[in-house]
Design a binder for these strands. Sequence first.
DNA 1: TCCATTGCGGACAAGTTGTGTCCGCTTAAA
DNA 2: TTTAAGCGGACACAACTTGTCCGCAATGGA
Lengths: 162, 162
Amino acid sequence: MKIVEGVEWAAHACAVLAGLGPGASLNAAALADFHRLPTAYMAKHLQALVRAGVLAASRGSGGGYRLARPPREISLWDIQAAIEGPEPSFRCQNIRRQGPCARFTSAEVPCDVACAFLAADAAYRAQLKTVSLADIARQVGAKYGCEGRARFADWARRQGTA
Amino acid sequence: MKIVEGVEWAAHACAVLAGLGPGASLNAAALADFHRLPTAYMAKHLQALVRAGVLAASRGSGGGYRLARPPREISLWDIQAAIEGPEPSFRCQNIRRQGPCARFTSAEVPCDVACAFLAADAAYRAQLKTVSLADIARQVGAKYGCEGRARFADWARRQGTA
DNA sequence: TCCATTGCGGACAAGTTGTGTCCGCTTAAA
DNA sequence: TTTAAGCGGACACAACTTGTCCGCAATGGA
């Protein structure tokens, strides 16, 4: 059970947008460069975030990505689901329906093993949903301190005119 | 974030052993055959369960696998960890330590994004740990009914003498 | 002692998935 | 019209999962 690395990229990219304030927008090159990540692949993830309704994109000159909703209404689960898909981690293959005792298992009643794993999955998602981009942006901002925030704003300003 | 299929195999195989009662033992071929799974690959998973201390093996003629502890003391997390390893699903690559604002992040203080994902991971594991093999065996046994349990015992008896 | 049975571990092959690049297309502003 | 930007598909490479096979070691019975 491993999370794809793109989820980390996406979370940090969204956190950058959240830290910039309402309506702020950056293009893929800027969002990739902030963490020194390959632009083309970051762009793929950003497009996935758009398809999932987490980000909104505007095309053409001066275009870029912005949050589709207020940071408070975007959870880390929204971001993970955008990148990896919302399917549960456990995929029941119904192996219990094979073998000498198969006929004592029902197709309707779900498998007990699957139920337990799906419950754990639900606990995972519930926990992730309690953390919003607003929380992350606040925590990161606090760690940056005054100088960090100034530097961050400075970098963002340069991106608009680059 | 996908669980490898072997976890399902391992969980059901352990459930079979738990359903057989204390001290019961089956070889890899029998455990694979019960769910019509490839013996060689099932054997690999059983060996992993032994390495993790979930099962105990005895070699040679008449050998096989048995639970290393009472079913009540084996959780589904023990089984998943045996097959996939106990590492958390989120692996922080510390991408925040790169780029224009990298120097405002500390190497000691953990990343906020990583903390949130690790907390979700902990919730997942905590939930899985609440389900023991004894729970699973009881639920499966109840669904089998009288006839199913008799058939199951019958099959198990034949495995010993095959 | 010899042999059949069984688990153990490594090597290997094939298929799937994740990572990353590139290119042509569309959109929009200057 | 040009330029900047997102969109999506094709492609290549790497890593991991799935699955098989083999020789070896251990155990019990003839």
